[in-house]
Amino acid sequence: MLRKKSGFTLVELLVVIAIIGILVGLLLPAVQAAREAARRMSCQNNVKQIGLAIHNFESAYRYLPPARIDAAPGFPVVEFGVPAPPTGTISHGPGLLILPYLEQNALYSAYNLQLHWADPANAAVIATHIPAFICPSAPEGKRTDTGNAPGSTAAPRWLASASDYSIANGMNGRLGLAPLNRMPPIPGYVFGDPSTDSLQYIGAILPMSTISSFTTGMSPPFYNKRVKSRFASMIDGTSNTFAWVEDAGRPTLYRVRTAIAGSRASGAGWADPDSEFWVDGFTTDGLTSLGPCAMNCVNNNELYSFHTGGSMAVYCDGSVRFISANTSIPLLAASVSSSLGEIETIQE
């Protein structure tokens, strides 16, 4: 009787190895995609937390947490006990006021609103990393921005923990004018006339600022007006208006997906009053402003995320949506502006 030969031939082994190779090849991108999907979900969760925080703030104060606070000589911000400084301004960033609603009450208590945000007394607070402000998809994780103390070019420099989220509360009105005509023009806006430069597509969450240039052009420099952003003034509907958006990766400057060595994207810190921004639109290489690219082209005070194909935004109704990177400038302007009567919704 012949003994049955057991074992595999070389060809069979090679085929099995090839198949395993192909399966692993299929699996690896899927695993990477699953990891990014998880990071994206975590990022979405952060944005949702911020959305809930501003709603809880609104419940307590009857208006939304301001994009920034500025007290100027002669003009205190009495709502938050910010005194009028003898010179310069006392300013605070957008992340600070929602800290108690992000379970960071202790940190909020340690911050002194009577002093400038970059005052040495606030240094420990503004340098604290807050998980809800950091998007896991941003490559560098916990980042710190640095700059000079107010009115000084010497040390000590302040250190501010970065936030990947901030407020887009305006759209550059020049995008609607000749020679660009990239979106519907704003009535009354005259090109090159500084007195009408304030006629931007104004967003929902505005600065509570006595620096008039933030809301009414350049002069006078200061005035006694403290804008309170309320849901009632959002006539486009809260579900059609951005509250907070992603501008990830600051203070490192990113163009498209490349970090630019030696360059800084300003306003990174969650406590930095310059954190909020107006959207300008950029060319697709991220080099020149007023281009057709609405997001993910440059992270210097524009919409930017490290997610493929778009970025996260929380709307004023508290809903979080993933905004497609192909969103056109007019559609983006409709979502940024709160009261120009457009109710177009960005498709997810």
Partner: peptide, 27 residues
């Protein structure tokens, strides 16, 4: 620039508008 840096423009006839605008928006 149309799609990427210094890539030029599609071949066509154009009318041209020129205006001075700030290159960067930095407060």
């Amino acid at each position: 620039h149309t799609y990427s840096s210094n890539d030029g423009a599609p071949a066509a006839d154009y009318t041209v508008g020129i205006a001075l605008v700030p290159v960067a928006d930095e407060g």
